[in-house]
């Protein structure tokens, strides 16, 4: 706050005077920054000194949404270099991994710039997801910017890499679904090779719900018959219905087998699978499997 003169500003109080109930004891520095900022905002002042103050404020509390909104108005009013603003934002992003405001602010800047290119987004998003590979806000932003640019060309290679690093990363599988659905609308899509990719990943980790859920998901989206998967499922649930199997089995595989048997009208076998899930393989969900069984008998 030394850079500019704020002496004409009377800082607004952050707390109601003489009301000590549920009151945050702000540091003097915090009070000073945010008190001045609130006064400038109320006066609708869009100036360099206000801009400088938002820097200090975000450093104190990067989740303070009002500051971000104010900063955007200032940036637009002063005709600031928005590319430079993106540079600054990247530094802030790396220090504040779990933050909503950063990504919303970035959206505002990109839209203002009408920057329909993934070029500077890719390295940033890669670094952010490297840091925290299931970061919901970063994945959300990635989807937004990909859609905004209409450029889905980098997405499959990117999720392949993440799935290779951690086949259980459900965020990566969800993003894959987003990419595949959109890619299939703009170019030829090879469903069979996609299914092959998923199967290989299931073989690697047969109890991974992420890959099984995805497999079912794309079958439903592309209106393919789930019963096509019967042979594959059987390789993971072999003889489970007939013999006592010890050791590792595929629980999601057994669930899908039940689904397939139900679709084929083989109710008795399906019921047996549900019983096994309820009594042996998935006892925490005994209520759910019994519920499924009640649906089966009504079907």
């Amino acid at each position: 706050m030394d850079q500019f003169d704020y002496s004409d500003i009377t800082p607004l109080p952050l707390v109601e005077p003489n009301n000590p109930v549920t009151t945050i004891l702000y540091s003097d520095e915090y009070k000073n920054i945010f008190g001045h900022l609130a006064a400038l905002l109320a006066a609708k002042e869009y100036s360099e000194r206000a801009y400088a103050l938002t820097n200090a404020a975000i450093e104190q509390n990067a989740a303070h949404y009002t500051v971000w909104q104010y900063r955007f108005k200032i940036v637009v009013a002063l005709g600031k270099d928005l590319e430079k603003e993106l540079d600054w934002l990247e530094e802030i992003a790396l220090d504040n991994v779990k933050n909503y405001q950063i990504w919303n602010y970035r959206q505002l800047l990109i839209k203002k710039l009408e920057l329909k290119s993934m070029k500077r987004e890719l390295p940033l998003l890669e670094t952010m997801l490297d840091e925290d590979s299931k970061n919901y806000h970063v994945w959300g932003y990635r989807k937004w910017v990909v859609s905004y640019c209409g450029d889905y060309s980098n997405e499959l290679a990117f999720v392949n890499k993440l799935i290779k690093a951690d086949v259980y990363n459900n965020s990566a599988w969800s993003h894959r679904y987003f990419a595949v659905v959109n890619l299939s609308q703009i170019s030829d899509f090879d469903f069979d090779s996609e299914v092959q990719y998923v199967k290989e990943n299931i073989n690697l980790a047969p109890n991974n719900y992420s890959s099984w859920n995805y497999l079912i998901g794309i079958h439903e989206y592309f209106k393919k018959d789930l019963t096509d998967l019967e042979d594959f499922v059987n390789t993971h649930t072999e003889d489970m219905l007939d013999t006592e199997v010890e050791g590792v089995i595929s629980k999601p595989g057994l669930e899908l087998l039940v689904k397939i048997l139900t679709l084929k009208g083989e109710k008795e076998k399906a019921a047996k699978g549900l019983d096994l899930l309820a009594s042996k393989y998935d006892t925490i969900r005994v209520n759910y499997w019994n519920y499924q069984k009640s649906l089966l008998s009504k079907a």
Binding site: L14, P20, V21, T22, T23, I24, L25, Y26, S27, Y30, F34, Q60, N61, A63, H64, Y65, T66
Partner: peptide, 14 residues
Amino acid sequence: SLGQLPPAFKMLDH
């Protein structure tokens, strides 16, 4: 939480 909260609670300022 009904009383005075230490400065670290600035993270709930907003």
